[in-house]
Computed example of a mutant assay.
Amino acid sequence: MDITTLCIHGAKNNTHNTGAVSVPIYQSATFAHLGVGKSTGYDYSRVQNPTREYLEQTIAALENGIDALAFPTGMAAITALMELFSIGDHIIVSDDLYGGTLRLFENINKKNGLKFSAIDTSNIEEVKKHINPETKAIYIETPTNPTMVVTDIAAMAELAKANNLILIVDNTFLTPYYQQPLNLGADIVLHSGTKYLCGHNDTLAGFLVTNSKELSEKLRYIYKTTGSCLSPFDSWLLIRGIKTLAVRMDKQQENAMKIAGWLTTQEKVKKVYYIGLPTHKDYEVSKRQGKGFGSMISFEVDTEETARNLLERLNLILFAESLGGVESLITYPIYQTHADIPLEDRLARGINEKLLRLSVGLENADDLITDLAQALSKEESYEI
């Protein structure tokens, strides 16, 4: 079945026989037993709920995994994921991860005895140098947030398997519609479902997906024990959002391609980070491991003053955190998504006062360009 059809029809719905086209919201905390030792398959919603189960089966199918677990946020998913590891275990991670992920690793997981090496995972030789007897996993974002560095997933999977390591891939930016890391050898895929999977900037969610029965059983035990599960209503909102994932991603990418090209022609824009540009250093890797480039663009302007003026002059594009929704959002990473990263580390990764991150939405691309043009100019801003 084509993935565009799978987005709409999802998993097989075995939870009801009413003929309802929309999956019901089973807003129940518990389920009655038919008798001693007899169950409907649902006992308590922390363990499983029919609405959430349908969503999880749909996500697993989209990623070509055997199991998916739905969490209240992406950060909750990562928190549960880290429970796979024990005191003294070492994990290699991309050095340009989302700031909240690095904050969790540095301030929570390290306190609990885990060790991390943050490096450029697009350089496989550098990754090899950091593998030691305590290393248990490699954790990558590709492309990274916010400087759009691309890691070769298949090459990293080969290295991980040769060293008996778990390969974890954050696939939030490209989604299973454009990239399927499990097919390339990854063991676990992570999503902030808040972003493109939901697609409407109105729901928080996170996912872990695996094609390993062993990892599925371990994660399910952690999930049941810690209780960080997505609610039935939020599960239903994600089911609804995923139905339009394919058409949203294609339109947003079309807009992003046009805007990225325009940004490269602007005098005040000194650098454009978009993996769909042939000038991107990892363009060929992106083409090889995915079927699209997504709609996330970062760009560096000439001065901090230009960046601040742009943020204050925009009328259509919203100055807000998050990404992946139908509305275009612009973020100032150094003071928002990566504010908790030490300044020296931020600057070393190119996250400076001139860098902006743009999540391109579904608006007319020319309207978005007009808004950016007036915000970049010296003239007073005007209403669109």
Rank of each mutant, 00 (worst) to 15 (best):
G325L: 02
G325Q: 03
I330R: 08
P333T: 12
T337I: 05
L343Q: 15
S328L: 02
T337P: 05
I341E: 15
L318E: 14
P342I: 05
I334S: 07
P333L: 13
P342S: 05
V326F: 08
D345M: 12
L323G: 04
T337Q: 00
Q336M: 08
I341K: 15
Y335S: 13
L347V: 09
Q336I: 00
I317A: 09
P342N: 01
L347N: 05
E327P: 01
A339I: 14
V326T: 15
P342L: 01
L329G: 06
I334K: 12
P333F: 12
D345N: 13
A348Q: 10
L318D: 14
L329F: 08
L316P: 01
I317C: 11
I334N: 03
D345K: 14
F319N: 09
L316I: 12
Y335I: 11
I341L: 15
A339F: 12
G324M: 11
I317D: 06
L329S: 03
Y335P: 06
R346Y: 10
L316S: 08
E327V: 07
L343D: 15
Y332D: 03
L343E: 15
S328R: 02
S328K: 07
Y335T: 13
I330T: 08
I334D: 10
L329C: 02
V326S: 14
L329T: 08
G324H: 13
E327L: 05
A348R: 10
A339Y: 12
T331V: 00
F319H: 14
F319Q: 08
H338Q: 14
G324W: 08
S328Y: 06
T337Y: 04
T337G: 02
L347I: 11
T337W: 04
L316C: 06
R346E: 03
A339L: 12
I330D: 05
I341H: 14
P333I: 13
I334Y: 11
P333Q: 12
F319M: 09
L329Q: 08
D340Q: 13
H338G: 03
E327R: 10
Q336H: 02
A320M: 00
I330P: 09
I317Y: 11
L316M: 11
I341N: 14
L343C: 15
I330C: 01
F319T: 09
L316G: 08
Y332G: 09
H338C: 11
L329M: 00
S328E: 02
E327K: 09
E321G: 10
F319S: 08
A339Q: 15
T331Q: 07
S328M: 00
I341F: 13
I334V: 11
T331A: 02
E321F: 02
S328D: 06
T337K: 04
F319A: 07
Y335K: 13
I334Q: 10
G325D: 03
Y332H: 05
P333D: 11
A339T: 14
R346C: 04
G325A: 10
L323H: 00
E344M: 04
G325H: 07
F319E: 09
L316E: 10
L318Q: 14
T337H: 05
T337D: 03
T331C: 03
I330A: 07
R346A: 06
L323Y: 07
D345Y: 11
G325V: 02
A320I: 04
D340P: 09
F319W: 13
A320V: 01
T331K: 01
R346H: 09
E344P: 01
I317G: 10
R346N: 10
T337L: 03
I317H: 10
I334T: 09
